[in-house]
């Protein structure tokens, strides 16, 4: 599968990664090379084979629905650059 510049630009937009225009050409070459190489999987007959998403063969355990944590405002705020009156502030993300 050969990816052209426009496709790479679109994937980069989907992944929200800014790629400089000058880098699109070499990047599409690299990504095409990787995709060509992984396409050897087409040689494998997987008819009737169930996909394997995890090697752990259990249903996810559920914990009790109860409060087990809290009263740690300082810890919660430790990684914000701009705490305000005990709130965690972030740039506006709802347009």
């Amino acid at each position: 599968m050969s990816l052209d510049k426009d496709t790479v630009r679109n994937i980069a937009y989907l992944a929200r990664i800014r790629i400089a225009d000058a880098d699109l050409e070499p990047l599409s070459g690299e990504l095409s090379g990787i995709l060509d190489w992984i396409e050897q999987l087409n040689a494998v007959n997987t008819d009737g084979v169930e996909p394997l998403a995890s090697v752990v063969d259990v249903t996810l355990p559920r914990r009790k629905d109860e409060v087990t944590d809290g009263n740690c405002q300082d810890k919660v705020l430790a990684n914000t650059t701009d705490p305000e009156d005990g709130f965690y502030t972030v740039p506006k993300v709802v347009e």
């Binding site: 980069a12 989907l14 992944a15 990664i17 800014r18 690299e30």
Partner: peptide
């Protein structure tokens, strides 16, 4: 896009793009 373009190196970007 600016944050992820600057913050991730080339190999990480390649893998995110392949994954996406």
């Amino acid at each position: 896009r600016n944050t992820r373009g600057e913050g991730f190196g080339d190999e990480v970007q390649r893998r995110i793009l392949i994954g996406a």
